[in-house]
Design a protein around this nucleic acid. Structure first.
Lengths: 150, 150
DNA sequence: GTACCTGCAAAACCTTTGCAGCATC
DNA sequence: GATGCTGCAAAGGTTTTGCAGGTAC
């Protein structure tokens, strides 16, 4: 589940690019750069995070980043998640990977949390009971991080 | 868990008001109205939802609503949750109650989902492993609702 | 050559804050 | 009477869109 070390990054990037191509997106510098940043990120990134990242700053406009994440989200290559801040966050969606997050209510720090998420099994139940399709879930824990205690 | 019928609304309101008072808030018309709307709501409400609700529209300014939800959230009487839209949503926090939500990725409809949430037990584990305190969680399911399928 | 992308700039949207007057305790 | 709340209005920050030009296919 959480056993994809750095080494996979290039592999993921290749996969993401060909998938993007297959879904009708053009391969532009901005696309490459954005996918790379997102794949190498350890945490979800906001639009601002992305636009200001080393990989994208000076390489493309905020509006382009915005339109890219929107398209990639629509295609299901990345996912927009909530996380409480005013802005949206984006994560790369690699099949079979899922992360839950732990967020400090005081300083806003975001940490991925490693656990055998018991919710995956519930998705089917929810699907059956509700009639919804294409179900996925988001799980976040909120609390006061060690640095902010006391 | 999910056995608090409408009848409890008045009881909850009384409780919420005295708790607000105890925590140092003044009892104003706006406070009463806001708590009532939130307690009677079946779904989480955004700032706009609240301000435009029958209970609050014409009764108080948006800024007042904003400041009220902020205070109530700080006091732990209501809770701000994410839910994906650009705006924050608020729910009344009654001790012992917890809701997870099912949100349509197409039309944005929000439904509370009834299930024995298995995440509560994980909170302790997360707390132990991470050193975070005051942990709570949010769980949302996303999918395409029956009306939006096809 | 065409359809799609990008940059720049402006428009839209909410949220957030300052301040003077009013209500609660 | 003092403190905290409220309204109004303005400021802040992101997100979103229009349009002309450039680029991938």
């Amino acid at each position: 589940m959480h056993n994809h070390p750095e080494a996979d990054a290039d592999e993921k990037l290749d996969w993401a690019i060909s998938r993007s191509r297959a879904l009708g997106l053009r391969r532009t510098k901005a696309l490459d750069a954005l996918l790379r940043v997102l794949i190498e990120a350890k945490n979800p990134l906001s639009l601002a995070d992305l636009a200001d990242s080393n990989g994208l700053r000076d390489r493309c406009d905020r509006a382009t980043v915005y339109r890219l994440v929107t398209r990639l989200d629509e295609k299901g290559i990345i996912r927009r998640i909530g996380l409480h801040e005013r802005s949206s966050y984006y994560v790369f969606l690699f099949p079979g990977e899922h992360h839950d997050y732990l967020i400090c209510t005081d300083c806003g720090k975001i940490d991925p949390v490693d656990l055998d998420c018991p919710v995956a099994e519930l998705e089917e139940e929810v699907m059956r009971k509700s009639g919804y399709k294409q179900i996925y879930h988001e799980l976040e824990f909120f609390g006061q991080c060690p640095d902010c205690i006391g």
